[in-house]
Design a protein around this nucleic acid. Structure first.
Lengths: 209, 209
DNA sequence: TATTTCACTTAATGGTCGCTATACAAATAT
DNA sequence: ATATTTGTATAGCGACCATTAAGTGAAATA
């Protein structure tokens, strides 16, 4: 069951029959917000359809299933909210890029009082369900992009640094969900940033022990 | 509905009527393992009672509700698995204590292939449910103990350091649940430990910028 | 206008959930 | 012995879940 939303605006393809009474991408965004605020399991199809303004059969005709719809919201989120490529541009010093990314994450995770943390990371733990697997997949891909970026730069121990940054973002997301405000998250990001700059210096010279 | 489990072995109080056919603390431990492996919402009362070897009425007579039983498992967990006082002993250098704690967390969170991460931290996000509030409460208390320990030592910026350590442990727990092995978690803990030692040095002298 | 093609509406399906009313079994108290 | 107290077992409650079968409404094609 393919949907034509998210970066795939091939609507107005064949317009026979009654036209759809709602906008796909708008519905996906509504669902993204609900999933982000309450979590996949705590959002019922009834809640989704009511928020969108449609009924369950329309929902299933358009998106196939609740899990498929959730994957659509994941795609929308990773395409719009977490623009990794904005930070991982070749030529920039890896430490600078990662520090900027951590600061941006801290800000983004506390930006909206509802919808705290990262939609993807917060759903990447239910590794057994299909929707959890989808989230974990995206998380792994993003992690990989960080590692590749570090290998492209002359960074030493790219895996170790990538893992450290990933863990920090996981922690920032969880802390955001527990209600920490932007200042606290930013302070943590700043501390982690100092760790990264220290690692870089540490790699070039010997440890001052 | 009070239960007399967990550090509260006042059984053999009044022995009138039919004696209980199972051991309270053993049941709590079984529940702790199930909750840790699958998460609160994914463990039904039916699964709990079957694993314990009793039927629902016995369960509710002994523990009151699923949420109350979960709180019992939380108490057992924080009293046995995460011995904070082992690390936060006055007199030890704060950096040493925190680094040891991070390393111990990394090891503990990956120790059992099932039951990855921290039972408390992984349940502290559902802030609206009563069981989630209970977990978040314990997490907050532990965080407070770290802060008090740092204030007791001559550490500067105790809140900032405590927040950084808390976030790192949140990240380690989440990474453990995503399947990272002990080596990866330990490497992250080691990087964070370097950050802490750097912070300490940084506080005493100016930044080498 | 007649037909086709799709979306929409109504209403319900089977399943699982946390929880419990009722009845029975096993121990102590008298 | 009987009465009382307490745990266990059977069976089922109502609520909610994701999903859908069947029929109706609306637009484009012929």
């Amino acid at each position: 069951m393919q949907t034509d939303s998210v970066m795939n605006v091939n609507e107005n393809k064949r317009q026979r029959g009654r036209p759809r009474g709602f906008v796909l991408d708008a519905a996906v965004e509504v669902g993204q917000h609900l999933f982000h605020e309450h979590g996949y399991e705590n959002v019922s199809v009834a809640a989704l359809t009511e928020a969108i303004g449609i009924t369950p059969p329309s929902f299933y005709a358009a998106f196939g299933s609740k899990a498929a719809f959730f994957k659509d919201t994941l795609r929308l989120y990773s395409a719009t909210v977490v623009p990794l490529d904005r930070f991982l541009v070749q030529g920039i010093a890896p430490t600078t890029a990662l520090c900027d990314m951590l600061r941006a994450a801290a800000r983004a995770y506390a930006a909206h009082p509802q919808r705290r943390g990262c939609l993807i990371l917060e759903h990447a733990k239910a590794g057994t369900t299909d929707w959890g697997i989808a989230a974990a997949q995206i998380a792994r891909e993003n992690r990989e992009r960080v590692r590749v970026f570090l290998e492209g730069s002359d960074s030493d121990a790219p895996e170790r640094i990538a893992d450290y940054v990933s863990t920090t973002m996981l922690g920032l997301s969880a802390a955001a969900r527990e209600g920490w405000n932007e200042a606290r998250l930013l302070a943590v990001a700043e501390t982690a940033a100092e760790a990264l700059t220290y690692c870089e210096a540490h790699a070039r010279g010997p440890v001052p022990s």
